[in-house]
């Protein structure tokens, strides 16, 4: 029993790392652009399909393929922001951005269905099957590599935000857009690049998701609802919060999974509702969600 619980905690932390990667992108986009990108889930799946194509058709290793898919997803993100999101203004902006990103999700999902069909696919590589024996557990190599990748990329985003001039202007925009504009920050450029970065991480998230789960174009919904729960729980716009919440949620889920796999996902959403009843800001929310 104890062994099972340790095991669940380790699993939760490792998968939590991968979710953290996707959630950081989402919460970053929220912080800067004040929108929730519903398309994030399906973009992860798009990233998985890109990796799938590269590995099946061109026999490029999954991790090497990221050198292609990450920049590609960055460009897709910038284009989406430029074409649709930039234009939205006015009182109903909150709901309109939801609609627009949802529409983008529907279109991408439809196109993926047209190309790949509804049959589930998985990503394959030598390290997807193999495992190592550490601390008395057998851990799948892909989880370890994925966790390392997630840590690296989150660290990269952290450095970008806290050690570069661009990061400084991103944080300024997150704090107060008007003031950022006043001191000469090109807010539109910041918004475009942030959206690009937020979407680019889905390439890595998608590769990891595809290597550890079977996916079809419809898998994006399940993902986006979990990611939304995570970023709200962590506190919207808080990057540290997103990291903590992903690890917390996935650990809770994998612990409940020991007793009842069917109810594990319900616990996920129930945890969100309970936490918000007690603390409407989430774990690390700066402003009360009430004032939003």
């Amino acid at each position: 029993m104890a062994q099972e619980i340790y095991r669940a905690i380790v699993d939760g932390i490792l998968t939590g790392g991968v979710y953290a990667l996707m959630a950081v992108g989402l919460t970053l986009i929220f912080g800067v652009l004040d929108i929730i990108n519903i398309a994030q889930g399906v973009l992860v799946i798009l990233g998985a399909y890109l990796s799938y194509e590269l590995s099946v058709r061109f026999h490029i290793d999954l991790f090497v393929g990221l050198l292609v898919t990450v920049p590609a997803m960055f460009v897709i993100g910038v284009v989406i922001q430029w074409a649709f999101i930039r234009r939205l203004r006015g009182r109903e902006r909150t709901s309109m951005t939801l609609l627009v990103t949802y529409a983008v999700a529907l279109i991408i999902e439809g196109i993926l269905y047209e190309i790949f069909g509804p049959n589930p696919k998985t990503l394959n590589a030598s390290y997807v099957q193999s495992s190592v024996h550490i601390f008395g557990f057998y851990l799948s190599d892909i989880y370890l590599y994925g966790f390392a990748l997630a840590v690296l990329m989150v660290a990269g985003i952290y450095l970008l935000l806290y050690r570069t001039t661009f990061g400084r202007s991103v944080r300024a925009t997150m704090q107060d857009e008007t003031a950022a504009r006043l001191v000469g920050i090109d807010v539109n450029r910041v918004a475009a690049v942030t959206f690009g970065v937020g979407v680019a991480v889905t390439a890595a998230g998608g590769m990891m998701f595809g290597a550890t789960n079977a996916f079809n174009p419809n898998s994006g919904y399940d993902l986006i609802s979990r990611l939304l729960a995570i970023i709200i729980l962590g506190g919207l716009g808080s990057i540290g919060g997103a990291l903590a919440a992903s690890v917390f949620m996935l650990t809770v889920e994998s612990l409940v999974d020991i007793w009842s796999p069917e109810w594990a996902i319900v616990v996920f959403y129930a945890a969100l509702v309970i936490v918000l009843v007690i603390r409407p800001t989430g774990f690390f929310g700066r402003q009360p969600a009430r004032a939003q």
């Binding site: 909150t94 919207l236 069917e262 319900v266 959403y269 918000l276 409407p280 009430r290």
Partner: peptide
């Protein structure tokens, strides 16, 4: 009583979360 304590994005996301809870309950 739970969802209306928060506004805007958070409200929308809570309604989505409750929706998924109900769908999963119907399944399980």
């Amino acid at each position: 009583l739970v969802a209306l304590r928060v506004r805007r994005h958070t409200f929308i996301v809570i309604t989505i979360a409750v929706f998924f809870i109900f769908q999963l309950m119907a399944f399980n």
